[in-house]
């Protein structure tokens, strides 16, 4: 089944809030070898001007992928997940994500392009606080390999 181009421009409802915790920030920072104490030490983070420990630059992928799952799992979208490869990823940080944030993501399908028998889908998730303040934008492009 081909990827359904009717989904271009479609926006999904905001996801359930993701509570950003000190423990997950620490685990994620350790897993990517980040040693800046602003990820693990509240005093160091406050001394650097942050409200609490801050997430590493790619932490937001966990929330972005929760957003993306809504599209990928939508049977009408025509995405065969066993043929999906992560092609590109970009984060734009409007401010550091900080422990205590409650983040909700709103997914929009920005584009679906065909190239070399494959489909490239770019998903944009706007990650905001519950009050609607922008925190980060995640742009994720998946490649859905064409069938033989």
């Amino acid at each position: 089944m081909a990827v359904n181009t009717d989904f271009i421009g479609r926006t999904y409802p905001p996801t359930a809030p993701y509570a950003v915790s000190r423990a997950k920030i620490r685990e994620f920072a350790e897993a990517v070898g980040a040693t800046d104490p602003v990820h693990t030490d509240v005093e160091a983070a406050r001394a650097a001007g942050h409200a609490d420990v801050i997430a590493t630059p790619t932490f937001a992928v966990m929330i972005g992928q929760q957003c993306d799952a809504q599209y990928v799992a939508d049977p009408e979208a025509g995405v065969d997940y066993s043929r999906v490869v992560h092609g590109e990823q970009r984060f734009i940080h409007h401010r550091p994500m900080v422990a205590g944030d409650e983040i909700t993501g709103t997914l929009t399908i920005d584009s679906i392009r065909q190239a070399g028998g494959h489909s490239m889908v770019t998903m944009r998730s706007e990650l905001n606080t519950l009050a609607g303040a922008p925190v980060a934008t995640s742009l994720s492009t998946i490649v859905v390999r064409g069938g033989e």
Partner: peptide, 26 residues
Amino acid sequence: TMGAAATTVEDWAGDAGAVVELGTRF
């Protein structure tokens, strides 16, 4: 691989909060 790239950028910047954009192709 991207997360470890982010670590090299934040180490150069001297502050993890300084990385305002990061993007890559795999």
